[in-house]
């Protein structure tokens, strides 16, 4: 049983890392604009699909990944500029519907460009598994965990050490005050969408060699990312990371130790229980409400 446990943990942390990156994207956009961007999962899909296409036309591997990320960032910026910004008078719920519309739109676009087939990316450095006792870990899993850790650390530094990062946090705390002290709130919004698109795209290219990708692969990852962000507490980007890894581990432990048929149910029951006892997630800030 211990090897099942170890294997489930490895799997859980790998998949959880992808959830973490998507969740981090959710948290960043939420922090700046109070909007939950339901098109976040589509960033993952577009990243992976673009990389597949670029490789197919003969682009060198590293360059293809890099260009794919640029494509995703552009999509993020376009989304903010042409769908979120024009709707500034919209309520939060209306904005959510806009992002749902955007995710359907992107899926439709991907369907036309890439067709309905599943695609896969080659693993970054071979597929020979590394043995840890009776459990194994693939090199790609290590890439997923490693790059996720680096990205998370960079985002952490960005928020705590740079002026732009601090300005971004200020927007979330109080947008009016932020604009009064001269922070360009509009540009910050654009920046937030670009950044979370980048994180989503990175999750996409990292996970595609393991899980494949298709035009409709984004929705499920988006949902899990959202769950990760909520579990950790929306207001705290690092909480989303913890939430993502936790969710991944819960799922795979559920599958490995209890029941694979009910593993998603187990994960969501635990999520609900967490919310019932900690209504702001694990690391969320306590909300204050305006009267």
């Amino acid at each position: 049983m211990s090897d099942v446990l170890l294997q489930s943990l490895i799997t859980g942390i790998t998949i959880g890392s992808a959830y973490a990156l998507v969740g981090l994207g959710f948290a960043i956009i939420f922090n700046v604009s109070d909007v939950v961007n339901f098109a976040q999962g589509e960033f993952v899909m577009v990243g992976a699909m673009s990389a597949v296409s670029l490789l197919a036309v003969g682009t060198p591997f590293v360059l293809a990944l890099f260009l794919a990320l640029i494509v995703v960032v552009c999509i993020g910026l376009i989304l903010e500029k042409f769908a979120i910004e024009p709707a500034k008078s919209a309520t939060v719920v209306s904005t959510i519907i806009i992002t749902i519309g955007a995710s359907i739109f992107l899926r439709g676009l991907a369907l036309l460009i890439w067709g309905k087939d599943f695609h896969s990316l080659p693993a970054f450095s071979g597929e020979t598994p590394i043995h840890l006792g009776s459990a194994t870990i693939t090199p790609q899993s290590l890439w997923v965990m490693g790059i996720t850790a680096i990205l998370v650390y960079l985002v952490h530094l960005f928020f705590n050490r740079t002026i732009t990062g601090k300005a971004l946090l200020a927007c979330s705390a109080n947008p009016i005050a932020a604009s009064l002290i001269g922070i360009p709130v509009k540009r910050m919004m654009l920046f937030a969408y670009g950044l979370s698109a980048l994180l989503g795209g990175a999750a996409g290219v990292l996970i595609a060699p393991i899980a494949f990708t298709s035009y409709d692969a984004g929705m499920m990852l988006g949902l899990k990312g959202f769950a990760a962000a909520i579990l950790g507490g929306l207001g705290n980007p690092m909480g989303a990371v913890a939430g993502g890894v936790l969710l991944g581990v819960l799922e795979s432990l559920g599958a490995g130790l209890i029941s694979s048929g009910y593993k998603d149910a187990i994960a969501f029951v635990i999520l609900l229980l967490v919310l019932f006892f900690k209504p702001q997630g694990f690391f969320g800030r306590a909300g204050e409400e305006r009267v």
Partner: peptide
């Protein structure tokens, strides 16, 4: 094109 148009209309 159905999916694409549906998304565009919603937005």
């Amino acid at each position: 094109y159905e999916v694409l148009i549906l998304g565009a209309i919603m937005m």
